[in-house]
Amino acid sequence: MEKGDLVSLEIVITLLREAMLEKASTAKGFLIDGYPRELEQGVRFEKEIKPCEVVLVFDVPDDVMTKRLLERGKNSGRVDDNEETIKKRLETFHNITQPVIDHFQDQNKVRKISAIGDVDEVFKQVEKVLDEVTKEDVTLKDAQVVFVLGGPGSGKGTQCSKIVEKYGFCHLSSGDLLRAEVASGSERGQRLNEIMEKGDLVPLDIVLDLIKESMIKNLSETKCFLLDGYPRELEQGQRFENEIVPCTSVLLFDAPDETMKSRLLERGKTSGRVDDNEETIEKRLQTFHNITQPVIDYYDKQNKLTKISADGPSDEIFKQVEKYLDSRPW
């Protein structure tokens, strides 16, 4: 600092981590004030320490901020509380911090607080946001989640329907949730539609938010959830368990490629789906094996994986599912 150099981000993140660990046993949460100032700071923090729950943006017009700082400057003694410097500081803030706001807005983590009025009135908005965040954290702690894996044509969708019918689990599909959000016409749905129209991947943070919100919505009916076709890759599973709740178990519907291919080709005769053709099916199967095998290996090592032989009539397959589900307290 004496040389006028920037402090390295590694040191800043280390100091933040150490301070959080020191207070972790007594703090209910952490407010990181004025951070991140630029996008890399936020990305690195979430990757190396913990994903943030929410981003509070105190939104004030430039003229109001200028007026406040000039008023403060009358007795603060600060050399930067003058009109010319304030203008530069505001420009710097907008140029550097707007990409941060946009990044977290895409993850549906930004909550804008209108900070023009009375301090107490502004705080009422803050209370509302924080009450929502803490409520979500508490309500899902007892949820029991089963990840349901299987290749295209493994019959996992059929088996999920049977589980719902007999055991009353809530069946969630990330694809269905994304499509429903787009169809709703919400602000988030419009952003999703733009992302999908460009052919870009939907950020995992949005997928996790949709799953979490749907779980909370259905919690009054059941605490048991089936996540159909999730996680497709390892990061999805790890992020879900870190940010929502650890999964109880993983059901893998294991069928030979030839069986899955035969089922999909048969379905293609009447489904009208453009991906139910031999060439596309081969690619989908290969993608499934390449991406999902690390997920299977990961949960197998944790002793959470149960393989269901999915090569046969659906009723025979379901008998294996029943045997597993009946052996556990739900």
Results as ranks from 00 to 15, higher is better:
Ser76Val: 08
Phe123Gln: 11
Glu181Tyr: 07
Gly185Tyr: 03
Ser220Met: 05
Pro51Leu: 06
Lys50Pro: 00
Asp81Ser: 04
Glu121Ser: 13
Gly272Glu: 05
Gly73His: 09
Ser174Trp: 01
Glu121Asp: 13
Asn218Trp: 06
Leu264Tyr: 02
Phe169Asn: 01
Gln98Ile: 01
Ile195Arg: 10
Lys162Glu: 10
Gln107Asn: 10
Arg78Ile: 06
Phe288Thr: 04
Glu71Leu: 13
Ala27Cys: 12
Asp102Leu: 14
Leu234Val: 07
Gly42Lys: 06
Phe104Ile: 05
Cys160Val: 02
Gly189Lys: 03
Glu165Met: 08
Asp257Asn: 13
Lys135Asn: 10
Gly237Asn: 09
Ser327Asp: 04
Pro294Gly: 04
Ile195Pro: 03
Ser249Ala: 15
Thr280Ala: 13
His289Gly: 01
Asn242Leu: 13
Gly42Leu: 05
Ser173Pro: 07
Gly117Pro: 01
Glu121Pro: 00
Leu149Ala: 05
Glu322Leu: 04
Glu46Gly: 12
Val43Thr: 08
Lys88His: 11
Pro61Ile: 06
Lys67Ser: 13
Thr270Ala: 13
Arg37Pro: 02
Asn277Cys: 11
Leu305Glu: 02
Thr92Val: 12
Ile101Lys: 03
Asn290Glu: 12
Cys52Leu: 14
Leu264Met: 12
Glu53Asp: 15
Val64Arg: 01
Lys323Gly: 01
Glu132Lys: 14
Glu84Met: 05
Val250Phe: 03
Asp137Thr: 09
Tyr230Phe: 15
Ser173Glu: 10
Thr97Ser: 14
Ile113Leu: 08
Gly157His: 03
Leu265Trp: 13
Glu38Asn: 11
